[in-house]
Structures are given as structure tokens and as C-alpha cells.
């Protein structure tokens, strides 16, 4: 499954970060690496972007971007 499919409150482990170029590098540098634990915390009132807690930081990620990250629930 992908990161955007996590339910609020659900935790998962990142398996693979997709995308290319700057996009992928940015995700990796923020610490979304394979093996990292992620907690889906919530979403903005209009359903997008989504928020996640990774390595102690709360991040807002658009669901289209989150769909490029594969996770194992």
C-alpha cells in the first residue's frame, strides 16, 4: 500500500520511495527512507494535504506526493 492510504492514527514502515529527481531527493533528505516508521496523524479539512509524524517531526504532504511512497502497514 502507499502512504496516502494509511488511516489516521495508523503506523507503517516505509518500503520504497518513488518519484524522481528533486522530488525523491527531498523526501529522502527529510528522513523518509526505507525502514523508517511513519504515523499518519490527520488531514486538512478539505481532505488534502495529509499530515504525518516522521522522526519526531510533523510533516504536511499532499496526498498525490504521498501516493509515491510505498509502505508496509
Amino acid at each position: 500500500m502507499t502512504l496516502d492510504q494509511l488511516a489516521p492514527g495508523q503506523t507503517a514502515i516505509i518500503r520504497e520511495v518513488g518519484g524522481t529527481g528533486v522530488f525523491r531527493r527531498r523526501l529522502l533528505e527529510l528522513g523518509l527512507l526505507p525502514g523508517t516508521r511513519v504515523l499518519r496523524t490527520g488531514q486538512a479539512p478539505l481532505g488534502d494535504p495529509l499530515s504525518f509524524r516522521v522522526r519526531g517531526t510533523l510533516l504536511s504532504i499532499r496526498s498525490a506526493d504521498a501516493s509515491l511512497v510505498e509502505v508496509i502497514a
Binding site: 529527481g21 522530488f23 523526501l27 510533516l59 504536511s60 499532499r62
Partner: peptide
């Protein structure tokens, strides 16, 4: 431009 991920830290 090519799309860039719009990631944003929500600070404490």
C-alpha cells in the same frame, strides 16, 4: 516547472 513536492513542517 516540473512539480516539486509541497512538503511543509508543522512546527511545535
Amino acid at each position: 516547472e516540473r512539480p516539486v513536492p509541497a512538503m511543509l513542517e508543522l512546527p511545535p
